[in-house]
């Protein structure tokens, strides 16, 4: 833990109207680090990610991105600063083609930026199926392919921090494996990843650190190994009754 982390969240409060959802969360994500947030439904995980991506304004606390205060900044500024969100439910542009979805991901960059074509090639190398389906509409893709497209679209802004909201939801185990090995590769290339995931066991296995969010507060935090070994975590989030793997 160092104060020069890429993403530094401190005492963040987020609510809808008068209903507080996130109540004083502090965490940080560094370069090439994967951090997982686990917690029950309604614990505030998605709301926290939305606030970090600028889709909801926090009511208190601060967010620092690469040393710059970006608390309450609009999403387009955060995308330009190198933070991208893969939203819950993928939120693709269904009638548009795969290629167009990727192009919108690069919306904040100059159209003639040669880096955009490079990144498109990189995304297609990471998920070759996207190159095969480039001219198909996003709505015709399978669930796994759609998730790959959602991640690819986020990568098109060349982020340094990637926020992922439930990337494994509703997908077959083999596809989930492909997505997590892609995330491993991205992390190895220096991308910082903040992951919200129902499948806590899977997420912690791939992460450096983790936090347990309970009723809008961080109830527990530590290295992935510590959390996997923690009895409470095993019982509540890892489904320990199925075995001790």
């Amino acid at each position: 833990m160092s104060s020069d982390a890429l993403l530094l969240v401190s005492g963040l409060h987020v609510g809808y109207g008068h209903v507080p959802v996130v109540r004083g969360v502090s965490l940080e994500v560094g370069t090439g680090e994967m951090v997982t947030l686990i917690g029950a439904n309604g614990a505030g995980k998605s709301t926290l990610l939305k606030a970090l991506a600028g889709l909801v304004r926090p009511s208190a606390g601060s967010v620092t991105l690469d040393g710059e205060d970006v608390t309450g900044a609009p999403p387009e500024r955060l995308v330009r600063k190198g933070l991208a969100l893969v939203p819950e439910g993928r939120m693709l542009f269904g009638p548009m083609t795969v290629a167009e979805n990727l192009a919108v991901g690069a919306h904040t960059r100059r159209p003639r930026d040669p880096g955009v074509a490079e990144d498109r090639d990189r995304v297609c190398e990471l998920f070759p199926v996207l190159a095969e389906r480039a001219d198909q509409s996003a709505a015709t893709l399978s669930g796994g392919e759609q998730q790959m497209l959602a991640i690819g679209r986020a990568l098109m802004s060349r982020p340094r921090i990637l926020l992922l909201d439930e990337p494994s939801l509703g997908l077959a185990p083999r596809v989930i494996g492909a997505i997590f090995s892609a995330l491993d590769r991205l992390r190895a290339d220096g991308l910082g990843i903040l992951l919200v995931e129902q499948d806590a066991k899977l997420a912690l296995k791939h992460s450096d650190r983790g936090h347990v969010l309970r009723a809008g507060r961080i109830a527990l935090g530590g290295s992935a190994e510590e959390l996997i070994a923690n009895d409470d975590v095993r019982l509540i989030y890892l489904g320990a009754w199925h075995g001790t793997e």
């Binding site: 600028g54 889709l55 955060l78 542009f93 548009m96 167009e100 919108v104 919306h107 904040t108 679209r153």
Partner: peptide, 18 residues
């Protein structure tokens, strides 16, 4: 393209920096 994206999914468009 950005406007069609906005019709497809406003959250998706916002998250893409539109």
């Amino acid at each position: 393209r950005a406007m069609r994206a906005l019709h497809g999914s406003e959250i998706g468009a916002l998250a893409s920096g539109v």
